[in-house]
Computed example of a mutant assay.
Amino acid sequence: MAGSSLPRRALGRTLRNYRTRAGYKQSDAGAVLETSPQSVSRMEDGQRIKISTAQIKVLLDFYGMSEPNSERDEILSLWAEVRRHDQIAKAQGTGRGWWRSYSDQLDGHFDHYLSLEAAANRLTSHQLSLIPGLLQTTEYRRGLIQASELDLSAVNIERRLEFAARRRARLDEDDFWLDALLSEAVLRHHPGGPSVMADQLRWLAEVSEHMSVTVRVVPFNVDVNSGLLFHSFTLLEFPPVTSRSVEPPVVYLEGYEGALYLDQADSITRFRRAITSIERVALSENASRDLVWRIAKECTG
């Protein structure tokens, strides 16, 4: 889904549902649109393809949604939102996503994640070992980069740090919220050394006073909770696309060799339950901030 926008993703998902309900294959839809099944697949995955309003209407007729029809109106409303979104992106020069200029520095799967992160208005990040990417200081990030890629050139290191700094700008947006649920282990690791970690922890404590960022720590001495059964993950939630269309959340799990994206309702339910369980044993925001400050002082001796 690289290059997808939230309205385009909602449109594709809805069209897929209606095609499946009508009993047609992607090749059938492709024949109607005079395009390939691969193009239909890309459209349903939320990717950009060349298609007109007239073709959308022909496709809806084919799916049995002739006028007047509320479902047809929903699709056309989504399509209008896609076109509006594209026009704004073109005017702002952001149509391809600002991070694409750093594609040579990113893992292939991360483009998909960044598209979702750019569209999300709320992230809940549960981390077992590292500070979430959006909350990492420059020197903390430098320590991680140098530890993972020993032969990376100084130029490429600086490009990655520049990318991380641009990504952090999301924290300044009024309509964006980040909830971080951190194992105490996250605060005890020292990428870059104790002084770097002390600065990272001080900044984490300061940013947690930001109205759009909450940080809660799960201390080592709490009772067993279901969060221990889950690896690090991020739940991304999205604003309504239109008055009648709400885009479902996505859970992102990153591994060393790739990533997994889950949006099935039962998966989302399991991860929401895990979040509730973790929140039940996590320290309050104020107690978490006190712990972060205390460990920062320990790092400086």
Rank of each mutant, 00 (worst) to 15 (best):
E81F: 08
R84N: 10
S115R: 06
L235N: 00
A10E: 15
G258H: 04
F233G: 09
Q26E: 11
L260M: 08
L181E: 06
T14P: 00
D104Q: 14
E285I: 03
G46S: 14
W293S: 07
L150I: 05
L283K: 01
E173I: 03
E298F: 01
G192E: 09
I295W: 11
D104N: 13
F163T: 10
R141E: 10
G64W: 02
A274D: 00
Q264H: 15
L128H: 07
F238T: 04
S115K: 06
S36Q: 01
V196L: 15
E298I: 04
N156R: 08
S27R: 01
E206A: 15
R270M: 10
R122V: 03
K25A: 12
E247R: 06
P191V: 13
T53Q: 06
A265S: 13
D28E: 01
A154M: 08
A287K: 14
T35N: 14
A169K: 10
G255A: 10
Q264P: 04
R170K: 12
A282W: 13
T269M: 10
M1F: 09
F110Q: 10
I145N: 03
D172T: 09
G258R: 04
I275T: 02
A259R: 13
F62L: 03
R159I: 11
A2E: 13
Y256C: 07
V213K: 03
D172Y: 06
D151H: 08
S103D: 10
M65V: 09
I49H: 05
V196W: 15
N156K: 09
D199W: 02
F238M: 05
R96L: 14
L6N: 03
V251H: 12
F233M: 08
T20I: 09
L171M: 13
S153Q: 08
L106R: 05
E206S: 14
V32C: 12
D174G: 06
S226M: 04
V207E: 09
L150H: 14
Y24C: 00
P37E: 00
W99K: 13
T53G: 04
F110L: 15
T269L: 05
G12H: 01
V292K: 01
S70K: 08
G46K: 05
N121G: 02
G227M: 04
A274N: 08
L253D: 09
L204M: 13
L161C: 07
P240H: 10
G97P: 07
G12F: 02
L171G: 11
S27E: 10
L76V: 12
R294I: 00
R19Q: 00
S284T: 09
L228E: 03
I131P: 04
S77I: 01
V251N: 13
Y140P: 14
S148E: 08
